[in-house]
Design a protein around this nucleic acid. Sequence first.
DNA 1: ACCCAGGGTCATA
DNA 2: TATGACCATGGG
Length: 223
Amino acid sequence: MPFKLIHDLLFAEYGHQNWWPGETPFEIMAGAVLTQNTAWTNVEKAIGNLKARGGLEPDSLLRIPRHELAELIRPSGYYNVKAERLRNYCQWYLEGGGFDALDRLDTPVLREGLLSVKGIGPETADDILLYAFERPVFVIDAYTRRLFSRLDLIKGDEPYEDLRSTVESSLSDVPDRVALFNEYHALIVVHAKDFCRKRSRCGGCCLDGHCPVAAGLARISHG
DNA sequence: ACCCAGGGTCATA
DNA sequence: TATGACCATGGG
């Protein structure tokens, strides 16, 4: 399973992405909720509003009335459901004792805790685990399914946990898995945005034209 | 005007 | 288990 190879091709093309954008772990967590099915440019506006309102921290955020919180995050879309999801998350986060206490939990336990929050599904949980808690968890999103499916590494419609397990197993022996998974997911998203959508307009990883992944694979197979 | 975005929940079969 | 409706703004 050449998952490592695909990462290397993407990295050669796009370089370091230094994700996740955000100054604190909690800002990363809030961003993970706000970006659900939403363009990041919209999330930036919502985060800007939250910062201007009084600091992007769980306790200050919980003090904002529900309706006002929804107004602040309006640009990120789904603002009513996301306002509740943010509140749910903050309550779980504070009840769990904050970052240091939660960070002492083993990854599977912490993951179950995240998934117990209404509004935190598998992808958002893994975003938080990887980018805020720096755990070696591979994030599966729609881009990842499309890319690996186009490369015939997977079918594409497998359940989330099956894919996560497949990829994590095949990369279990690399030295720094946190750094690799961090970079890999970022590269897949950036490739989808910068090349597939903007340049190729293929709707995601068509491997046509000047696609760096297709070019790299062709280069290798030709000797 | 249409399509999609760094998803998840809930009802239904 | 697996679809479908629903949530909603903003950029291409």
